[in-house]
Design a protein around this nucleic acid. Structure first.
Lengths: 120, 120
DNA sequence: TGCGGTACTCACCCCGAGGTGAGTGCCACC
DNA sequence: GGTGGCACTCACCTCGGGGTGAGTACCGCA
């Protein structure tokens, strides 16, 4: 699976970036972390309605491998793990901002609806 | 399949954009068209080593539906079809540029190789 | 006493993205 | 006259991305 790797030869910068962002929830996780700074596992799960725990863990692990997110484990009695963006994650998000703007424009064009979230 | 649709509710602008760009070759097609302006079917196929004809046609059709590429058919004896970016395609590509830059930087970081292409 | 929350792992399954290969009609070239 | 190129379409198959549901060790609260 994606345990390690994700370094295959690329055609250009775009797919090198896409490779890291591809996955049903990756970009949304990035966005959540960007919006909230630091989030616990359960907070992320609640913030992404519809995500399965397996996928969330898996994507988080991959993004950690790719150096996008930082995982801070607190060895406390009820487990506590905090996820945050690394500098690479932050810069990726910055790079995604123009894409987000384009997507927002596209949503307006085609009249797409927004998924209701408890966020914000 | 993807014949029509691709207008589902989105979480934010990012996945509205990702929805249109997701597909193994979509972003590369966008890039090819951006680099060369106008390309014929067979030129695209040669420009994307490894793409299957089926996928190329399918992606091209979807991107046409999404208003990203323009398809110009010349009713000549050996079939001739030219693909080019629409204004939406061009603006999407512009939005992808910062992502491409990030990806290029990532390639340098992890020491990823580039796929050899005949493109300049 | 038992339920719910925290942060997972594991096993299993399913569907669809994507690949393969053949067929098409017409032409140019060798 | 046969091959190859053009721009596809169609049928078939595979594989893995992603979903479901259960299990875990420990605690707090009702």
């Amino acid at each position: 699976m994606a345990t390690s790797a994700r370094q295959g030869p690329y055609f250009c910068g775009i797919d090198a970036a896409m490779d890291v962002v591809t996955g049903k929830w990756k970009s949304l996780i990035l966005w959540e972390l960007h919006e909230h700074g630091t989030r616990r596992f359960a907070e992320l799960r609640r913030g992404l309605p519809g995500v399965s725990e397996k996928m969330l863990v898996q994507h988080l692990r991959e993004m950690e491998e790719d150096g996008l997110v930082h995982r801070e484990v607190y060895p406390v009695v009820p487990p506590k793990v905090e996820y945050s963006l690394t500098e690479h994650g932050v810069s990726l998000n910055t790079a995604l901002e123009s894409l987000a703007a384009w997507g927002t424009e596209r949503m307006r064009r085609i009249g797409a609806k927004k998924v209701a979230t408890d966020a914000a």
